[in-house]
Nucleic acid binder design. Structure first.
Lengths: 347, 347
DNA sequence: TTGTAGGCGTTATCAT
DNA sequence: ATGATAACGCCTACAA
């Protein structure tokens, strides 16, 4: 019934007609291809402006590039990831690439989120703290240029990685606490099934143990773990804080956990940092709030994200050898631990 | 040098050959089109499995659907938005659609983020708390099925909207505070140039003023504003809290602001809620932390997100009249205000 | 129920 | 320096 809306899209042919040239000339201008005179280029660009032409991404995706990069986040609740995304967008700022985000809240959804991006012929992939097996990551990276952020895999050649030096970061924390007079320092890590050794919290444990050893605190080493589940974290925190031999300080593998531990401590009527010190990792924005005032390690999510974006663009442009970037973290002292005054100095 | 990897993509033709049918038969199976026998369908699906065929999204995008929905967030730092995204993904769970996110941190980037999505022939668009003018929103919605979340535009017909009842939410807060004995209640809103009346913080102000009036507190009305800038928020908070006539309670238009006000109050040595009560809006996860313990209004970001996703799918399927959904909020009382015990009752 | 022509808007190659 | 032409993988008629 309705009259066939001939809403005729503006294509390169429309532009060509308007400019009085062939459509392949327009294509060349668009691609900065070799062999176009300045006058032709000018004419075409004028027409593009006038008509408000926009290239059709799907059509491009048929042959060439989509100029779209996919970013996969494990979740959106951790504010660290939003810092990373800021950096990614920064890194892409002066490039033709656009980042689009997929969120995979469960490990099981990770696969389908990645598939969705690969299926859409995106030009590259940034995986943030992925949970799948390394072999699967390699398989994916052979399909699409890939950069992995937040996983230590220095020997992999199929993709680039970007990390901060988690071992160093953890040792900064231990030294900071020791300097503040704490000796019995526990490490609160993440409970996971796959490849503990490649994960940031794994490296942090290594750094924690090494520093405890170096400082002669090896018999005070104590590691507890919980999954991502909030209630489980709270439960473990409560057990730890109510134990007869309560640690003097608790180093949590990420701010998220530290907030919960802090919360439980307050609920139990403990004073922080007098009764127990708490330190986090990531230095997310909430650490700065006065009622929280959490000492934390800054790994600059923004810088990590920017690095990842730049590496990915390089890789798309043809780099074939792998790069494994490691950034130096620094500790930011706040009220949740003593010795905050000189904690700004990083190791 | 390297032998031209004839990595020949698996297309519907490959599948057709493998299954011993025509490629259009395969296409029909893929689209659940009319006129395929069960045996044929089975054969084709077996081949698809065996070959690991995946449809080429770009090619689909040329004629049909991309089965991709774009979501635009103003930023990722507000945890409320991550609740919304959870809901969006929930709402899309049993559908063939996949949500991809674009982040537009500045108002100026909003346009290009939307363009990126439209250019990619996505099937629909969910705009979360967009900052552009309503007329522009309408123009976009005429291009692509659109749902707007977090903007009150009940008269618009070009797109659907999803909101909570901000006026009611604000009045719940005022009543809650009055009941707790507070009378001098200030409202901390957002400073903006465009269309204050359509924004959630605008409606909250209306609700605030109305409730203050109803409760005979009209001469205690006091509204302060700040932009999104953290320092500006802190500055205004400090001015307010140090003023000679400090309000007894401060209702902040969003948790984000409330956290900062709380932080400044603590820095100034004020006791919350004895010296000043603080209430937020959104009931984001951090409200629950013991050191924060912020009374807040829950508008269920997850439910809003799910609604938006469902409305968008309906719209894509052909609904042409606009829907304007409004969800009822409830107040969640916590330590930052008195009267928390009976605050769980919503209005 | 199955198979066969276009056509979608590009890119890239090959003639002019 | 330009312009014509063949893919690209899928969808949508329409014909068998």
């Amino acid at each position: 019934m309705e009259p066939k809306k001939k809403s005729s899209r503006i294509t390169i042919r429309t532009v060509a007609e308007d400019a009085g040239v062939s459509f392949s000339a327009v294509s060349k201008v668009l691609r900065n291809a070799y062999g176009v005179s300045d006058t032709l280029r000018a004419k075409v660009q004028a027409s593009i402006e006038r008509l408000g032409y926009r290239p059709h991404a799907a059509a491009r995706g048929m042959k060439g590039h989509t100029y779209t990069l996919g970013v996969i986040l494990p979740n959106m609740h951790n504010p660290f990831f939003s810092d990373v995304m800021l950096g990614v967008n920064d890194g892409l700022n002066r490039t033709p690439y656009q980042a689009l985000l997929g969120v995979s809240r469960a490990a099981s959804e990770e696969r389908s989120a990645i598939d969705a991006i690969v299926d859409r012929q995106m030009d590259g992939l940034i995986l943030i703290a992925p949970r799948m097996k390394t072999s699967e990551l390699v398989a994916i990276a052979e399909t699409i240029p890939t950069v992995v952020l937040g996983l230590h895999l220095p020997d992999v050649t199929a993709f680039d990685t970007v990390n901060n030096d988690d071992t160093l970061g953890a040792s900064l924390v231990v030294r900071h606490l020791k300097h503040g007079g704490y000796r019995s320092i526990a490490y609160f890590t993440m409970d996971t099934s796959v490849d503990y050794g490649r994960a940031p919290f794994g490296h942090r444990e290594v750094g924690y143990r090494a520093a405890m050893n170096d400082l002669g605190l090896s018999e005070r080493v104590r590691v507890i773990a919980a999954s991502e589940n909030l209630r489980e974290i709270q439960l473990e925190a409560r057990k730890l804080l109510e134990a007869s031999r309560r640690p003097e300080a608790i180093f949590c593998w990420t701010d998220y956990v530290a907030f919960e531990v802090l919360s439980v401590a307050v609920e139990l009527g403990l004073r922080v940092p007098e009764d127990v010190a708490i330190v986090g990792y990531d230095n997310t924005a909430f650490c700065d709030l006065a009622p929280i005032s959490l000492t934390s390690v800054d790994q600059s999510g923004q810088q990590l994200g920017m690095q990842a974006a730049q590496l990915l663009v390089e890789r798309i442009k043809g780099r074939s050898h792998a790069e494994h970037v490691v950034i130096t973290p620094r500790i930011v002292g706040r009220g949740s631990s003593l010795g905050a005054h000189d904690a700004k100095l990083s190791g």
